[in-house]
């Protein structure tokens, strides 16, 4: 492989762009969530800072940065400091494999609009999404607080319930695209989106990613109202901010992956590919906010029951049916 300086510059440019866009979008997703939830509840939401409250994320950031960085007595110092990073970093890293636009040609180089086109991209996603839960587990364990510990135990129990069905729901996608490479999966959907062939797998994946990013029907690790704030009870300032922003980055990233796997990625008529991709991702984000405004929280055992006794068998049956269908079609 030849390392052309222009290639390297383009790669660094892509990384910087992804970082900037993802972090800004995550901050504004917090704002959007507060606004949409307010509208659902017949309120107005934040509207004081700047026009229509648009500078609210900035004000929140200043607040988080100037708060006291608090560590409880008896907390495991290094794990306590490590956990927020463990929650936020894998979430951003997953986005490295998501193709967010059609390949461009710049300075005579073909630029994939994707930070890294790995041939095992889908497996990397599964691995990193499992790593992300370490942030929850370690944060709760290191805090030396019963609420945080209960939250992290729930987080782990939740992980083993949804991770399996999430993985199994992606198997039909791989069978249809015949590749783990995300750009191949997107290209396989140029004609027809996989949601048409795989509505059941899409539903299972959607439910699983709601559990993955700890959104409301499955927000057991946080469960404000039962566990104070769950695993991040003892965190303050920017460390709490990292957990928080990590959760919203997770929404964007998982929305992006759901788009890539089932909604044809950046494919779409008339509009530029990147616009299609962002529209689909934002639609997922809106769906999550909408669901949060509607549904109550499930109980811990209900989630495990649902994951193990319904989602996983359904996903297995779906794989079998897909296999038969592919064999019969030849």
């Amino acid at each position: 492989m030849i390392y052309d300086p222009i290639d390297i510059a383009l790669l660094l440019g892509k990384i910087a762009l992804v970082f900037f866009v993802i972090l800004t979008l995550a901050a504004y997703l917090v704002f959007a969530e507060r606004k949409v939830l307010a509208w659902i509840q017949d309120r107005k939401g934040p509207n004081r800072v700047g026009p229509f409250g648009l500078l609210q994320p900035l004000a929140d950031l200043i607040k988080l940065l100037t708060k006291e960085d608090f560590r409880p007595i008896g907390a495991d110092k290094w794990l306590f400091y490590l956990a927020p990073a463990m929650a936020a970093i894998p979430a951003i890293m997953i986005f490295a494999i998501v193709p967010f636009g059609a390949p461009l040609t710049l300075f005579g180089h073909t630029v994939q609009l994707q930070v890294s086109d790995l041939n095992v991209g889908l497996l990397l996603f599964m691995a990193l999404s499992s790593v992300a839960v370490y942030g929850v587990a370690l944060g709760g364990w290191a805090s030396n607080s019963k609420y945080a510990l209960l939250g992290s135990i729930r987080g782990l129990a939740q992980l083993i319930s949804y991770e399996l069905s999430m993985g199994l729901s992606l198997v039909p996608v791989v069978m249809l695209a015949r590749s783990f490479r995300l750009s191949d999966i997107v290209n396989a959907q140029a004609g027809c989106w996989f949601i048409v062939y795989q509505p059941l797998a899409f539903m299972i994946f959607l439910i699983s990613i709601a559990a993955e990013c700890k959104r409301i029907p499955f927000d057991l690790p946080e469960a404000e109202g039962e566990l104070v704030a769950g695993f991040h009870t003892e965190y303050s300032g920017m460390r709490f901010g990292l957990f928080f922003v990590g959760e919203y980055i997770n929404i964007i990233v998982l929305g992006g992956l759901a788009t890539t796997f089932f909604l044809g990625g950046w494919h779409g008529p008339f509009l530029p590919p990147a616009v299609w991709f962002s529209a689909k991702v934002l639609a997922f984000a809106f769906l999550f906010i909408w669901v949060r405004g509607t549904l109550p929280r499930l109980r811990y055992d209900q989630l495990m029951h649902f994951g193990w006794k319904i989602l996983t068998p359904l996903a297995l049956v779906n794989i079998l049916v897909t296999g038969w269908w592919l064999v019969l079609r030849g």
Binding site: V36, A38, W39, I40, Q41, D42, R43, K44, W290, V291, G293, T294, L295
Partner: peptide, 21 residues
């Protein structure tokens, strides 16, 4: 029941807020 709930919250998004500034 899920769909009914989602429909109700959807309608409320477009309702006038009751907030008094």
């Amino acid at each position: 029941a899920l769909v009914t709930g989602m429909w109700i919250t959807w309608k409320h998004i477009f309702r006038r807020p009751v907030t008094i500034q």
